[in-house]
Amino acid sequence: MHRRLKRIHEQYNDLLSVSLAGLQLRNPTMLASGFLGISQDVFNRLYRMGAGGIVSKSISIEPIEGYRNPTVFSLEESSYINAVGLANPGAEAFSREIASNRNVPIIVSLVGSSDNEFPSMIKKFDGLNILGYEINLSCPHVAKMGMEVGDDPEMVCAIIKKIKSNTHKPIIIKVGIGSVDVVKIAQVAKDAGADAITAINTIRAMAIDIETMMPILNNRIGGLSGKSIKPVGVRSVYEISKNLGIPVIGCGGIFTWEDAVEFMLAGASAVQLGSVIGYKGLSAFTTITKGIKKYLERKGLKSAMEIVGLAHKY
C-alpha cells in the first residue's frame, strides 16, 4: 500500500476499522460500484462524508456510452431496476480522473470481455494511489461482459490468473446470481487466486408499465438492487464465507446499520452501499457507521472484525 495512505488508515485503527485481503479500511462501509463512481471530486466528498472505501464504476478498456434512458428507475419497495449498460469513461480517461487522488481509499472496478483486455488497464492504474481492484464478473444486462463472463468458469479463471500476473495489488471478484451457482463461481475465483469476493451484484429483473403496456427500461431487462435483494445477498455471503473461508464484502440492499451488521454476521468483513444513497443521500455512510459503532459498544466488543461470520456456527 502507498505509504501515505497507510499512515492515514493507521489513524483509524480503532473499534470500526476492518482489514481484509490486505486492505485496511477505517470503517466497514464502502461505496458500491456503479453508484456515483466517475468523479474524483465526488470521491473526495464521499470520503469526507464518512465512506470507508470507494469502488469506482466498472471501467472498460474503451469508453462506453451505455443504453439510452430510461436506464434506472425506482420501485415501491426501496429498490431500483437499472440497465445503465456499463457506461464509463474508459481506462484512459478514468486513470487521468483519479491521477490526483491523495488520500481517498479507491478500489478500481474493472470489466472486460476477455482476459486480454485486463493487462493494459492494470498498467494504467497500477502506479496510481489506489488500494486494489474489484473485477465485475456479474453485471446482468450487457452482452459478452459481466455475468456472461461470470457464468463461464474457465473464463473467470483465465481473467483472474491474467490479472494476478500483472499486479501485486489485491483483487476482489464481484459475483452475482447467474446461471452458475454463486458459491461455485466464488470457489473458481478463490482457486484462481482472488483475494476476496464481493457478493452480490444486481439480479436480472424487469418492469412493464401497464398504461403504455411497454417495458420501462430502454434495454427492457436490467438488474434489481435495493431492499428487495437483501436476503439473497445475506444468503450468498453466508454460504461463500462459511464454505470457502475467503474474505467477503457484502452488498445488496443495505439501508440501515442493522442490515450492515446482519451481513457482517453472515461473514462480510465490509459492506457496500448503493441504492440507499438514492433514498437517503450521502449521509447514509455516517448514519450506518454510527449505528454499527453503537451496536459494537452495546455488545461489549473491541473490534468490528469480531462479529464477522459469527452466524457461521449455526
Binding site: L36, I38, V42, N69, V72, A87
Partner: peptide, 20 residues
Amino acid sequence: MKCGVGICASCCIGDQLVCK
C-alpha cells in the same frame, strides 16, 4: 442525467450533483 436522484453522477459539476 440518467437517474435524477443522486446515484449516477452523470450530472456532477465538481463534487456537486445538479439533480440533488
